[in-house]
Amino acid sequence: MSSHNETYLTAQLKEHFDKEEEVLNILVNLEQAFREIYKYFQCEMQKQMILIERLWLLTQRYLILISSVPGCRYPQVYTLSAEEAIINEDSMQDAILNLKQDCKQFNKIYNQLNKRIGTPLIMGDEHHQSIQCHKIMITDIFNYFYSTVLKIKCYVHQLDPINLESVEDYRELLKKETEYEDFQDYLMHSFVYCKCLQSRPTCPIQKLKCYHKIETLKHTSRI
């Protein structure tokens, strides 16, 4: 049953306001979901930075050993360790694709809105951007995450543990992505319809729950 049951509203307006309520609920949920994805993204990138630094060291040692001692068996040990350090990017891709359906649903309801009705949601006001602006931001944010994951996936598939140039290219890519502060500001501050609709902040003592055991990934030299 519609929550807009005021008798003075026409059937057309009631339907429109129900659509506005639905699209706003999806928008608020997407705001929270994208922020959670970003936290996970940061955590995953930190893990990958540790692994690629480890792989970078192992690759250099491997190349030094095979160039200085022909026929030496020790490089086999290092290549096995390098294989263990190759990154699995599927978890990030799955997390992004899980939001694709929500983005599609938002666009579907948005397209059903009557843009000629000058409501605050459609037009925006001094405190809120229009729903069209948020539609553009949803597309931008999703495309950023998706393109970044695809870029990482391409680099990982071309990653050769015994090719130092390949490892360094991937290392530079990770550094570049982790230093992109403009996107963080865009997501955390610009992509907000109304702060009053956001969930209450958790206790500041509670830290971000990260399921990556970062301390176990740090490289301990064998030499």
Rank of each mutant, 00 (worst) to 15 (best):
M1Q: 07
S2T: 14
S3H: 08
H4E: 06
N5C: 05
E6P: 00
T7Y: 08
T7C: 06
Y8T: 05
L9V: 02
A11P: 07
Q12D: 13
K14Q: 15
E21P: 05
V23M: 01
L30E: 02
E31M: 01
Q32K: 11
Q32D: 12
A33P: 00
F34K: 01
Y38N: 11
K39D: 09
K39I: 09
K39Y: 07
M45H: 14
M49C: 13
I50V: 15
I52V: 10
L55R: 08
L58R: 08
T59M: 03
Q60C: 07
Q60Y: 13
R61S: 09
L65Q: 08
I66G: 03
V69H: 11
P70F: 02
V77S: 11
A82Q: 07
E83A: 12
E89N: 07
S91Y: 06
M92V: 08
A95V: 11
A95L: 10
I96W: 02
I96K: 00
L97I: 12
L99F: 08
K100Q: 15
K100T: 07
K104Y: 14
Q105H: 15
N114F: 04
N114A: 08
N114K: 09
G118W: 05
L121P: 06
G124C: 03
H127A: 11
H127G: 08
S130Y: 04
S130K: 05
H134Q: 04
I136A: 12
I138A: 00
D140Q: 15
D140L: 12
I141W: 02
F142D: 04
N143D: 13
N143K: 12
S147W: 02
S147V: 09
V149C: 04
I152R: 10
H157C: 09
L159S: 01
D160W: 05
N163S: 05
N163M: 00
L164M: 10
S166C: 00
Y170W: 03
L173R: 03
K175Q: 06
E177W: 02
T178R: 07
E179G: 03
D182K: 09
F183H: 03
M188V: 12
S190I: 12
F191K: 00
C194S: 15
C196N: 11
C196G: 06
Q198N: 13
P201N: 00
P204E: 01
P204Q: 04
I205H: 13
Q206S: 13
L208A: 10
K213V: 13
I214E: 06
T216N: 13
T220S: 10
T220G: 07
S221R: 09
R222K: 07
